[in-house]
Computed example of a mutant assay.
Amino acid sequence: YIHLLLLLLLAHSANISRHDIQATLWPDGTTCPYKVISQERVSHSICFRTLDRDFICDQRNCKVFRSRRSSLLANVMSNSSVLLQWHPPAQDTQALKGFYMNCSWNGTYTLFQCDSVHLGINCRDYLLPNVHETVKYRICLQTLYTNRTSLEECVEFIVEPVGMQDIVIAMTAVGGSICVMLVIICLLVAYITENLMHPNFSHPAAKRGP
């Protein structure tokens, strides 16, 4: 019966308009309804994702970027994906209607607009897959309330090429080895100069005649 009920809810939610997505409040609090809005302002059908509440950014494969007020985080992972996390003010949760996320990235010559996303009340994270490397992204989030809209909270980040972190670590290790070798060579040259090029020969005393 539970699976049947979920299927009915999914079928019903597919017809929900963009302005009514905030009404999709799932009882378990772990499902995030969202709708992707393309550059042509075309609203696609509603999608659902499970919240990654237990996600922890591993420093070996992930780097954290924060907004100015630290309420919006961008967890940039080594697999060219970014998990965005946010927390609305606790005192305004009663009037909460949802969230609106805007995305853009700065290429070589111009600024490109990503797809925008309209998210429901339950949403506290969103996965941005297949991001471009070596370009600057800017993600802005607005919290929607029944009678107002909050100011944008923005975070900026750059996705490093795959394997770049390993290359940097390897170059650092090689650079450290070269420095050690140079120190050893300098000490060896100093030793040779001191002991071989300028030896301290002892002169025998002159013999006195009879």
Rank of each mutant, 00 (worst) to 15 (best):
I2R: 09
H3K: 12
L6F: 05
L8T: 05
S13L: 06
N15E: 09
I16N: 01
I16C: 08
L25P: 01
W26F: 13
D28A: 06
G29F: 00
G29D: 00
P33S: 07
P33L: 02
P33K: 07
K35W: 01
K35D: 14
K35G: 05
V36P: 05
S38P: 02
S38E: 14
Q39E: 13
H44A: 10
H44T: 08
H44C: 04
I56Y: 00
C57E: 02
S70D: 11
S71Q: 05
S71P: 02
L73S: 07
N75I: 00
V76I: 08
M77C: 09
M77G: 04
M77A: 10
N79H: 13
L84W: 02
Q85M: 08
W86D: 00
H87T: 06
P88I: 01
T93S: 10
A95Q: 12
M101R: 07
N106M: 13
N106A: 04
F112T: 09
D115H: 07
S116A: 15
S116E: 07
H118N: 12
G120P: 03
G120R: 02
D125V: 01
E133T: 11
V135T: 09
V135F: 09
I139M: 09
C140T: 15
L144R: 00
R148K: 11
T149S: 12
S150F: 05
E152F: 15
E152N: 08
F157V: 06
D166G: 04
D166A: 12
D166N: 08
A170G: 02
T172M: 07
G175I: 09
G175Q: 10
G176H: 13
G176T: 08
I178H: 01
C179W: 07
V183F: 06
V183Q: 08
I184V: 10
I192F: 14
M197E: 06
H198G: 03
H198W: 09
N200R: 11
F201W: 14
S202I: 14
A205D: 03
R208L: 12
